[in-house]
Computed example of a mutant assay.
Amino acid sequence: MFTKQYLKTKDVCRVRFKMRKKVIGTAEKVNLVGDFNNWDENAGAMKKLKNGDFSAVLDLELEQSYQFRYLVDDTRWINDESADIYLPSPFHGEENSVITI
């Protein structure tokens, strides 16, 4: 899931991405991978919280849409349950989550 916070002092939206433990179980690592980091599977490491959730914060440009997914333990791809929409991925016939700012 994610939350959007539009900043008054900058032309960006601060987005807090969260992957809940109830969705990913006992995962050791979650990466946030998408258009904003050129789909680099190693660039978007999320911080593991004490309760087992994972979190990351990004400042994203306004009036843009970004496709993304979560990569859990380098083996399992998961979409965001709160995505604005889903679009077909060119890989493996699956869908990507989309956030629109």
Rank of each mutant, 00 (worst) to 15 (best):
2 F>W: 04
2 F>Y: 14
2 F>E: 01
3 T>H: 04
4 K>V: 00
4 K>E: 01
5 Q>T: 07
5 Q>M: 04
6 Y>S: 05
7 L>F: 00
10 K>C: 00
10 K>A: 07
11 D>L: 05
12 V>Q: 09
12 V>D: 04
12 V>R: 10
13 C>D: 06
13 C>T: 09
14 R>Y: 02
14 R>T: 04
14 R>G: 00
17 F>S: 02
17 F>I: 01
19 M>E: 13
21 K>D: 08
21 K>G: 04
22 K>Y: 13
22 K>M: 08
23 V>S: 10
26 T>Q: 15
29 K>D: 14
30 V>K: 00
31 N>I: 04
32 L>M: 10
34 G>H: 14
35 D>E: 09
35 D>V: 06
37 N>R: 03
37 N>I: 03
37 N>P: 02
38 N>T: 10
39 W>G: 06
40 D>I: 02
41 E>T: 14
44 G>H: 12
44 G>P: 11
45 A>Y: 14
45 A>W: 05
45 A>M: 15
48 K>Q: 08
50 K>H: 04
50 K>Y: 06
51 N>P: 05
52 G>A: 05
52 G>I: 07
52 G>S: 04
52 G>Q: 00
53 D>Q: 02
53 D>G: 02
53 D>K: 01
55 S>G: 06
55 S>Y: 03
55 S>H: 04
56 A>L: 12
57 V>N: 05
57 V>M: 10
57 V>C: 05
58 L>H: 07
58 L>D: 06
62 L>I: 09
62 L>S: 09
63 E>N: 12
64 Q>M: 11
65 S>C: 15
65 S>D: 11
66 Y>P: 00
68 F>W: 12
69 R>S: 11
72 V>Y: 03
73 D>T: 04
75 T>V: 14
76 R>A: 12
79 N>T: 05
81 E>A: 14
82 S>A: 14
83 A>H: 00
83 A>E: 03
84 D>T: 03
85 I>M: 09
87 L>A: 14
87 L>T: 15
88 P>H: 06
88 P>R: 05
89 S>Y: 09
89 S>R: 03
90 P>W: 08
91 F>P: 06
91 F>K: 11
92 H>Y: 11
93 G>K: 09
93 G>S: 05
96 N>L: 13
98 V>A: 09
99 I>R: 08
100 T>F: 01
